[in-house]
């Protein structure tokens, strides 16, 4: 029994960490600029495609493909942010929703055109395949790898946010945008950097997700729902919130399906509705 609980916690946590990488960027940008970017999942999708392509066409190893996915998405997002999205910060929520849905449509069509509708495959190096047995429990090596990557990134993010100058600026901009601007902070620039970081992380998450959930042009839509759940449950603009929300969602999902398979698919939605009714701002939301 205990070993089952351990394995469910482990698997759920790994899935949750994947969701965390995919959604943390959206949470922070939403909290900072109130900009609803439904195209966030599309960055994850293209991150996955970048990783698959460089591994296939250029034969680069997996560990090189991951940072490349991050960089490519960060650069792409800055380009899109500077040319398109920045016009919309003052626009209403509904217009942002409409515009970014439009972007998702275009992204899906572009992915279909370039890569075809076929499911993409990522070939992992041997040392990431299979599982190890510890105390009679089998742990998937790749899942452990995902957890490791996510924890390192969380540590970097928390450190960056608490200790660096940019981190302080971001916190200021999230807490009170007008005040920060009044104090001479270039909020737009800070935002552009945050946006790039967030989308880069989504790209990284997308690349990591290929092995677990696959990759096709509808990835952007599929993941959007999960990402939105994580963001709303965790609370806007909070890294720890996204972390907790994602872990909760991942573990809840896996545990629900394991212990009560008949109602497994309901559980996360019940959880979502219940949490939001009790805490409309999410678990860690400030406003």
């Amino acid at each position: 029994m205990i070993s089952q609980i351990v394995i469910v916690l482990f698997d759920g946590f790994a899935f949750g960490m994947l969701l965390f990488l995919l959604s943390v960027g959206l949470s922070v940008t939403l909290g900072m600029m109130n900009f609803i970017n439904l195209a966030h999942g599309a960055f994850g999708m293209f991150g996955g495609y970048v990783a698959v392509t460089v591994m296939r066409q250029l034969g680069l190893p997996f560990l090189v493909a991951l940072p490349l996915a991050f960089i490519a998405m960060a650069v792409l997002s800055v380009m899109i942010e500077r040319t398109l999205f920045r016009r919309l910060y003052k626009a209403g929520e509904l217009n942002q929703v409409l515009f970014t849905i439009g972007v998702v449509f275009v992204a899906a069509a572009a992915a279909t055109f370039i890569f075809g509708t076929v499911q993409q495959v990522i070939i992992l190096p041997d040392w990431l395949r299979g599982s190890v047995e510890i105390g009679g429990i089998r742990f998937g090596i790749y899942r452990a790898f995902i957890i490791l990557v996510a924890l390192i990134i969380t540590a970097l993010l928390v450190f960056g946010l608490e200790r660096t100058r940019l981190g302080a600026q971001i916190r200021a901009a999230v807490d009170n945008q007008r005040m920060a601007q009044g104090l001479g902070l270039d909020v737009e620039r800070v935002f552009a950097i945050t946006f790039a970081l967030g989308c880069g992380l989504a790209g990284l998450g997308g690349a990591l997700a290929v092995e677990i959930v696959g990759l096709s042009p509808s990835f952007g839509f599929q993941m959007l729902v999960y990402v939105l759940i994580v963001v709303s449950v965790g609370g806007l603009g909070s890294i720890s919130g996204s972390f907790a929300g994602a872990a909760l969602l991942g573990i809840g999902d896996v545990a629900g399906k394991y212990f009560w398979p008949e109602i497994g698919s309901f559980l996360i939605y019940l959880l979502l509705v219940a949490i939001l009714l009790v805490r409309p701002l999410g678990l860690f939301g400030k406003r």
Binding site: D11, G12, Q119, I212, V213, G214, V254
Partner: peptide, 29 residues
């Protein structure tokens, strides 16, 4: 998106054979 929970249930039952049907696409892999 994630099969680990169901597969763990199969592993617990430790059957002689497991029969699987999933839609094509990403799920088989």
């Amino acid at each position: 998106p994630d099969f680990s929970a169901y597969v763990q249930r199969v592993a617990d039952a430790d059957p002689e054979a497991v029969y699987i049907f999933v839609p094509g696409g990403a799920q088989p892999a």
